[in-house]
Nucleic acid binder design. Structure first.
Length: 196
DNA sequence: TGCAAACCATAAC
DNA sequence: GTTATGGTTTGCA
C-alpha cells in the first residue's frame, strides 16, 4: 500500500508517495493539482494507494525537508529513495545528479561523459526525474551555461538556483563511479540571465 | 548567430 | 522489432 501526502508550506505545495518507508516519488509546485498529478504519474501501476489529508509525523518531516531544499538550504539527511524499479541507466544518471553539490552546476554533456550515453539521453532522464527536488535536476544546465529546460518551468529553475548561490568563484570536481565530474558555481548560469 | 546532423535511452506502437 | 521523442552538443557557414 502506497501512502500519499501533500502539504502547503508558505504557498508552495509539496507532495510525496511512500511505500514501506521508501519514497516512491516526490513533487512540488504552486499548483496543487499539477503536483499531485506528477505524483500519480510516477506510481507503479500494480500497487494500490491511499491519499492522506493529514501528514504523519514521518511524512511531515520529509515534507519539511523538501521545503528546505526549495529554499536553497543545505540538507544533511539521506533520503530513502526507491530507485530499484527504474531502468539501470536512469538510476545511474539520477545518482550522479545527486552528487552535484549545493551551489554548483553540471552540464547534460558532462554527466553523459561520466555515466555513458549522450547529452540528450541525460536530458530525458532529467525530464522524467521522479524525485524533484530531492534529486537536484535543477542543477543541470546546457554546456554554455544557459538554463536548458525544467519540468516546473524555467522561472522556478532560476529561482532555485538563485537561492543556492553560495559565492563560489571557481569550478571543482566530484567523483562519480571512477570518473571525475566537473561542476561549476551556479553564478555561471545566473550571470547569463537568459529567460525565454 | 543559425542550422543540420549526430547523439542514445525510453516509451509507445 | 521499430519508430518517435527529447530539459543536448558540436561543427560549419
Amino acid at each position: 500500500m502506497i501512502e500519499i501526502y501533500s502539504q502547503n508550506i508558505d504557498d508552495v505545495w509539496f507532495s510525496i508517495a511512500f511505500e514501506k518507508q521508501q519514497i516512491i516519488t516526490s513533487s512540488f509546485g504552486v499548483n496543487r493539482q499539477l503536483t499531485l498529478s506528477n505524483i500519480l504519474r510516477n506510481l507503479p501501476f500494480n500497487v494500490s494507494f491511499e491519499f492522506f489529508h493529514e501528514p504523519s509525523v514521518f511524512a511531515r518531516s520529509i515534507l519539511a525537508s523538501l521545503k528546505d531544499i526549495y529554499d536553497g538550504k543545505g540538507i544533511d539527511s539521506n533520503f530513502p529513495l526507491a530507485l530499484n524499479r527504474l531502468p539501470a541507466y536512469t538510476q545511474k544518471t539520477l545518482k550522479t545528479t545527486a552528487k552535484i553539490p549545493l551551489g554548483y552546476l553540471a552540464s547534460y554533456g558532462s554527466i553523459a561523459k561520466a555515466v555513458g550515453g549522450s547529452p540528450r539521453a541525460v536530458g530525458n532522464v532529467m525530464a522524467s526525474n521522479p524525485f524533484a527536488p530531492i534529486i537536484p535536476c535543477h542543477r543541470v544546465v546546457k554546456s554554455d551555461f544557459t538554463l536548458g529546460g525544467y519540468g516546473g518551468g524555467l522561472k522556478v529553475k532560476l529561482e532555485l538556483l538563485s537561492r543556492e548561490k553560495r559565492g563560489f568563484s571557481s569550478s571543482t570536481e566530484v567523483e562519480v563511479n571512477g570518473h571525475m565530474l566537473q561542476v561549476f558555481p551556479v553564478e555561471y548560469s545566473l550571470g547569463r540571465l537568459c529567460l525565454n
